[in-house]
Computed example of a mutant assay.
Amino acid sequence: MTLAMAQRPVRRSLTLLWQVLGLLIILGLWWLITDVLKVWPPYVFPTPQAVWQEFAYGLWGSGPQDGKLLSSVGNSLRRVGLGYLIAVALGGGVGLLMSLWRPLRDTLGAYLQGLQSVPSIAFVPFAILFLGLNEKAVMFVVIIEGFIPVALAVSGAVLNVPPAWRTAGRTLGANHFALVTRVLLPAALPNIVTGLRTAWSFSWRALIGAELLTSNPGLGQLLEVGRNTANVALVVATIIIVGVVGGLFDLIIRALETRIRRDYGLEVQA
């Protein structure tokens, strides 16, 4: 075992320690500002205890929001999971076609670049008017926000494969199909996975925004309930859940990305 390998558990433990300390500092400052100094009244900025009560009501306890937080997480994950898979399938196919056919890349690719700068919330009114105030409108926004970064990522990743690899594949007798499936796509995989991680974050944020403006039960709608009832503790609790769930899935995709990059020799194991 090398010295670097022996130091890895120590580095990971120190990282975890710093993260825990940072969380405790944030909670301590939150408690100090709200419970001790009372800078803002509870109906403006809630105390940690009030937010914890909303967690208890919504996840396992009984109260005004009995079980609603847990069911909202399930509904949101179901929508974003299905929408993200559809976006990856459609975006991957379109992105591959753009990388192989220049006219499509110069037209559709340019349009997608422009649409990528449009905030996801801007698609919600169109989705509602076009599809109605229902689940389809939410799914449309999630799919379109995931589709664009996936298509652009796949197209860019395939185009960035070194020309020498293409030449080597043809020299070794690969036909067009084999060149794409056995040379270009495997070579582009690390950058494609990076695009998939970006697409996940776009889809997750788009989902919350769409649920916020529609009547479908989910985390976004729970935020709207908190606003309408002036329950700022419920709003903060829901925001924390949104961040935690989104962060956990991002960590999963990031771990996959890191593993692939290490396998390709693009990243040294820390």
Rank of each mutant, 00 (worst) to 15 (best):
A110H: 10
S117Y: 00
V94H: 04
P103W: 07
A151F: 14
P125C: 07
G63Y: 02
V154C: 02
G83V: 08
V51K: 00
Q113D: 15
L96W: 04
E145T: 15
G83Y: 04
R166A: 11
R105G: 15
L129I: 14
L112N: 07
F55G: 06
A174I: 00
P149G: 06
A122I: 08
G83R: 13
V142K: 02
S117I: 11
G61I: 11
N134T: 07
Q113F: 12
P64E: 02
F126G: 15
T47F: 03
F140Y: 10
A87Y: 06
A50C: 09
V118M: 13
N160W: 08
L100N: 08
F45S: 08
V88W: 07
V124W: 07
Q65R: 11
G91L: 05
L90D: 02
V142I: 14
S72H: 05
A137R: 05
D106I: 09
L129Y: 15
P162Q: 05
R102W: 12
S120M: 07
Y84W: 10
G58R: 00
R170A: 14
I121R: 04
G58F: 01
H176N: 15
G93S: 13
I128T: 08
R78N: 09
W101H: 11
F130E: 15
N175I: 01
P103C: 10
F130T: 14
V141F: 00
V180D: 06
P119F: 04
A178Q: 11
Y84I: 12
K136A: 13
P119D: 11
A137G: 14
E135G: 03
G93A: 14
R78F: 06
W165V: 08
T167Y: 08
E135M: 11
D66S: 15
P186W: 01
V118R: 00
G63P: 14
L85R: 04
Q65K: 09
V183C: 06
V150S: 10
G58H: 03
Q116D: 01
A168F: 13
L85E: 07
G109P: 05
M139C: 13
L152S: 10
L104N: 06
L90I: 15
V88H: 08
A87N: 05
I121F: 08
F55Y: 10
R79G: 11
P64H: 00
R166C: 01
R79E: 02
P149W: 09
L133P: 07
G169H: 01
W101S: 09
I148V: 08
P46S: 02
I86L: 15
Q53P: 05
W52Q: 12
V183W: 06
A110G: 11
A168H: 05
L172T: 06
L108T: 08
N175D: 10
V80I: 07
L115R: 04
L159D: 00
D106L: 13
A89C: 14
P48E: 13
L159G: 02
L69G: 00
M98W: 03
N75W: 03
R79K: 06
Q116H: 09
L108E: 07
P64N: 03
N134L: 13
G132D: 06
P163Q: 04
Y57K: 02
Q113A: 14
R105L: 03
G81C: 14
E54Q: 10
P48V: 14
L82V: 15
L100F: 02
P125V: 14
